[in-house]
Design a protein around this nucleic acid. Structure first.
Lengths: 334, 334
DNA sequence: GTGAAAGCGCTAACAA
DNA sequence: TTGTTAGCGCTTTCAC
């Protein structure tokens, strides 16, 4: 990489002249500016990012910590983050906590050495189970703002971007009740996450308020065979409606129902949290609650950058943005 | 963040003493080392990464440019990259080219300003179609090594990590022929990618060498309704075997076959490139060619770091690692 | 055993 | 209009 020094030497001017010329300073003569710029272009000069970061004490880099990159929703949020960040000239350093508290802490600590200006993150499963938040508060205390999305810690004071999980599932459940379903099951692989809990509560409320059945919940852990468990669930309970809390279970529920000879949606209706892509993995396609993952990512970036640009350290009040889900009617409901 | 300066002041020693003490220099007295370390620990001192990068002229950061984060395979490679990089103390800056040549160029150029020590990337679709490679060569010329994976440019001299696409599909196709299938179709949504072409060639070779049928290829573009097109393909051609080049098509083929009343695998066998996760989205599960995406990522990191550690600029010969696929027999084949 | 000073590449206040 | 200088945080050579 060419440096200012080298340009300066070749042009027989001082380093600061070159610097100012490249930054279109009023102080510098037109012809000098031109000479400098030409040579800079010739050598494809680019200001060294590291030096700039050191000088200006900010990196224009966002640390992103996500629990699981193979989760389609989280990957899509990451996509939204990257896109929006690029728009503002920010880069992102991505760490994957792999649902582990330890790795999450490490990543946070490691990047708090001046590598990033702030964080966007969704909390690891283990962290949510153990309900640890000290490491978040520490980072914030060190002057590194955090924006949490989806899985958030309510007792950490920071900007958040969340989804109307409770309402979405509440409404979806009511929709199945309106269809005349009388035995609606709830399937969750994420019952230990904040969002999983909210969704289950939405289901419970709708069922308890508007039906005579009892809540009927199937919990599946990540190590279990979901096809097998869902099949058993169908056969034991003879449900005529299914609400799935995560994206995969909805599709698997449809495929399983068909496999055991049920007709979807005649015999059983299914609604899930899902994306276009995943919903395509069953016939009929899964009627879905869409989370607008990209918007979530974009909003998180906006909140973070807004906070980074605040001159005074005086905390503006933290804000929570709720990105409304939308409902996509596909073939798996009446 | 605490700096050496602040520690030095508080301890009434010089900055260099503090620096040396923290690095366990032999020059410094034991008690001084102890005093320094205690205060550093108290203040949770961490060397400023940016300053270190500037000083040592290396960032311990890898630029990763991938075409599509929502592609399960690519996301999994990214996972492998992140994990392996973390092991070596490297961070990753992720850019998503979104299959666009322009964005790919931009990302490469942007990060070539000292932000990263080298690149790991998979080439964007548009780049492969237009067969542009100048930007890669330029980056390498600037002293930033590149490791390409999966979608690679054969006329760029750099380290590569690829998969035995041709052989894998060749063998899979032969397997269906051995089952006694006489009308085997090939479904591809990626026929303009280097890997897509290789896979199609593997299929063609197996069919031409070992059967009496002609190759029967269904190409689906990303904007088309794959369920619809696959259904039409089945109904028109009455295939009794399907080889899918990408991960989603295999699962959709199974679901479609079942939907139109075929039995899988009695009436039709299906094999696809796929992961555990995606294969779970059909009943029976998709018999799959596994690409070991995490290994691919890990190997890419190893190659890059090896090259970064070479003292002399004298190019060691570039190497290409082939990560062998493995075959997972599930319910969609006999 | 400890400290002063230079330098990584850059910007900006100040001098000329 | 251009140049000198200091300084961001750190390591390291060279004096003391």
């Amino acid at each position: 990489m060419v440096t200012l020094k080298q340009l300066a030497k070749e042009l027989n001017v001082s380093i600061s002249t070159v610097s100012k010329a490249l930054n279109n300073s009023e102080e510098i003569g037109e012809d000098t500016i031109k000479r400098v710029k030409e040579l800079a272009a010739l050598y494809n000069y680019k200001p060294n990012k590291v030096a700039l970061s050191l000088k200006q004490n900010k990196t224009k880099t966002i640390g992103v910590i996500i629990p699981d990159i193979l989760n389609y929703f989280l990957a899509k949020v990451l996509f939204g983050i990257e896109m929006e960040a690029a728009l503002y000239g920010y880069n992102i350093i991505t760490c994957i906590s792999n649902e582990s508290l330890e790795k999450e802490k490490e990543s946070l600590q490691l990047l708090a050495n001046g590598s990033v200006d702030g964080f966007i993150l969704s909390i690891a499963q283990e962290t949510q189970i153990k309900n640890e938040v000290a490491h978040f508060k520490k980072a914030i205390g060190q002057g590194l703002p955090i924006v949490m999305f989806d899985r958030v810690a309510h007792d950490v004071l920071c900007d958040k971007v969340i989804v109307d999980d409770f309402d979405a599932i509440y409404n979806a459940t009511k929709l199945l009740l309106l269809e005349g379903r009388t035995k609606i099951g709830f399937i969750s692989t994420i019952d230990d996450l904040s969002v999983g809990k909210l969704r289950e509560r939405g289901y419970n409320k709708a069922i308890l308020e508007n039906s005579n059945q009892n809540p009927l919940v199937l919990r599946i852990s990540k190590t279990e065979d979901s096809q097998f468990k869902i099949k058993a669930f169908f056969e034991t309970n003879h449900v005529d409606g299914v609400i799935a809390a995560d994206s995969a279970s909805g599709v698997i529920a449809i495929n399983t129902a068909i496999n055991i000879g049920l007709h979807v949606p005649k015999d059983v209706s299914v609604i899930g949290f899902s994306s276009n892509y995943i919903a395509n993995h069953s016939i009929p396609r899964l009627t879905s609650i869409r989370q607008h993952a990209r918007d979530i990512g974009a909003n998180a970036v906006q909140l973070l950058i807004k906070r980074l640009q605040q001159k005074n350290d005086a905390d503006t009040d933290v804000s929570t943005r709720i990105i409304k889900t939308s409902f996509v009617k596909n073939g798996s409901t009446l």
